[in-house]
Simulated assay, not measured.
Amino acid sequence: MKELKVLALSGSLRRNSYNTALLHAARKLTPTGLAIDIDHELGGLPLYNQDLDVDTPPESVTAFRRRVADADALLIATPEHNAAPPATLKSAIDWASTAPQKPLRGTPVAIVGASPSPFGTVRAQLALRQILASVGAEAVSKPEVTVFHCDTRFTENGVLTDPHAIDLLRGLLDALLIKARAAQ
């Protein structure tokens, strides 16, 4: 069976982001049949602007749309900013959703998040699920991976140490693989 490509997006642009570290943890736990590529280019995308969404959008947008279209599935790690996903992540979804080939429609998407708060990223993930549903993406519903008090669940070097979070992440990746295979 062919290996499926997962494009991983971190909604955090911070250098030592817990959400990016969560994607690195996912890459280490990737089940056979998936290959995770972490995208480090979201910071180079302009905020969505319909005036720029023309036949020849900025090159960063064209390249991003190509990476999304080439992926069999997405893995999104979202921080929570004021009870919502960050603007950078929302803007990236807007750019992908307005591409002529509509690469998000029917695309399996798994969502994770890490936050130092006691609630993790529950509200941001809920909002993100609503956004993804509106563009026709197929979100994996369970298990939910929201790493609360993340500052105590990662080492200084960004290694996820919490066994429960690791088990949930492993389960989510297995569910993503099943959904991505079914979409082929």
Rank of each mutant, 00 (worst) to 15 (best):
M1D: 01
M1R: 06
L4M: 05
K5T: 06
L7Y: 04
A8C: 04
A8M: 00
G11R: 10
R14E: 07
R14P: 06
R14K: 10
R15K: 13
N16Y: 08
S17Y: 07
Y18A: 15
N19Q: 10
N19D: 09
N19P: 13
A21G: 13
L23C: 12
A25W: 03
A25Q: 12
T30S: 14
G33M: 05
I36F: 08
D37L: 15
D39S: 13
H40M: 12
L42M: 07
P46C: 14
P46W: 09
L47H: 09
L47N: 07
Q50P: 10
D51M: 12
L52A: 12
V54F: 15
D55I: 12
T56I: 14
P57Q: 07
P57I: 15
E59S: 14
E59W: 14
S60I: 13
S60L: 15
T62D: 11
R65P: 06
R65L: 09
R67H: 08
A69V: 15
A71C: 03
A71H: 01
D72M: 03
A73T: 01
L74I: 02
L75D: 11
A77S: 05
P79I: 04
H81K: 06
A83M: 04
A84C: 04
A84L: 05
P85A: 05
P85W: 02
P86Q: 08
L89D: 03
A92K: 03
I93G: 05
I93V: 07
D94W: 12
A96N: 00
A96P: 02
S97N: 08
A99W: 10
A99P: 06
P100M: 07
P100I: 07
P103C: 09
R105L: 15
G106Q: 09
P108W: 08
P108M: 11
V109T: 11
I111Y: 07
A114F: 03
S115L: 10
S115G: 07
P116I: 05
P116Y: 02
P118N: 13
F119E: 14
G120Q: 07
G120K: 05
T121P: 01
V122W: 12
A124S: 10
L126K: 07
A127E: 12
I131N: 14
L132F: 06
S134E: 14
G136R: 06
E138N: 08
A139M: 11
K142H: 10
P143K: 01
P143V: 01
P143Q: 01
V145L: 01
F148G: 01
H149K: 03
D151F: 11
R153W: 02
T155W: 00
T155S: 01
E156S: 05
E156K: 11
L160T: 00
T161N: 02
D167G: 13
L168V: 09
L169W: 06
L173T: 04
L176I: 02
K179H: 06
K179I: 08
A183S: 14
